[in-house]
Amino acid sequence: MKKRYLLLALIILSFISIFVGVTDLTPLDLLNLDADQEQILFVSRIPRLVSIVVAGASLSIAGVIMQQLTGNKFVSPTTAGTMDFARLGILVAMLLFANTSSFGKMVVAFSFALVGTLLFMKILEKIRYKDTIFIPLVGLMLGNIISSLSTFVAYQNDLIQNISSWLIGDFSLIMKGRYELIYLSIPMLLLAYFYAQKFTIAGMGESFAKNLGLNYQQIIHIGLIIVAFITSTVIITVGVIPFLGLIVPNIVSIYRGDHLKKNLPHTALLGANFLLICDILGRLIIFPYEIPINLMVGVIGSAIFIYLLIRRQKNEA
């Protein structure tokens, strides 16, 4: 797959995305928009498109960074507890500072996600038995513990409904004025590109990195900050989107290898495309209703994930 095909696909899919929806809007209308259509276009369709593209690209990159740093293909914000910690952070923000802005919630979510992911990395250091499948299982367990804690606290405080709206990623609620925080993950993407080669070297192991004069701990921390920041901005604007950070990097790895600097544009483009396809399908299948994005990604994603697992076992046999 060439980069320009991915870019072309992104343009075509974006185009389709803008014109799919309950309110009629065709490319021809663009020349002569009435007030309603203008409203739909600028308040709903374009914000939705932008947030899908940014979320798809940045979650995939968060995933690939985690996979590089842990040297494990099955670690991602979903399978390392990062998302669950971020969600707990939002809950804590709602409880402690009831009227805080989205930005305030995001900051708390970010701190929780960062601490949680650091905790996961510390657990990894302690584990002797570094089996490829075992490590993400540890992350999932950690995430589930945190998630049940969130549910318990939310239940006690009558916040179950609020917390579940962050559990389920949903683009149908994206509107002008409510999604702009997601733009904050764009500088993180640039930072990720800047550090790409260092992440790959760190992924080769501590002694390998030290031999090349790299400050290993510092690079790990920068990587985790980027991951936690991206995860919390996406959760606060869109909600949890599972598997994305897992599948997309794995697909790119198969055909491009793991040299992060060469991969990042592909990972970002493929992630955006993948999420756009899921979103467009979700909007079409039960038209005029909508299937939430996390369900679409979950179904398509877990199928691909199982395929990757089987493929891996075949390779190892």
């Binding site: 040297g71 080669q197 790959t200 090349l212």
Partner: peptide, 18 residues
């Protein structure tokens, strides 16, 4: 040197210049 990253020989060697 167990690395779990998929790198080509040339990419690996190029890290030596880091």
């Amino acid at each position: 040197n167990h690395i779990n990253l998929r790198l080509t020989v040339r990419e690996l060697v190029s890290f030596g210049r880091f």
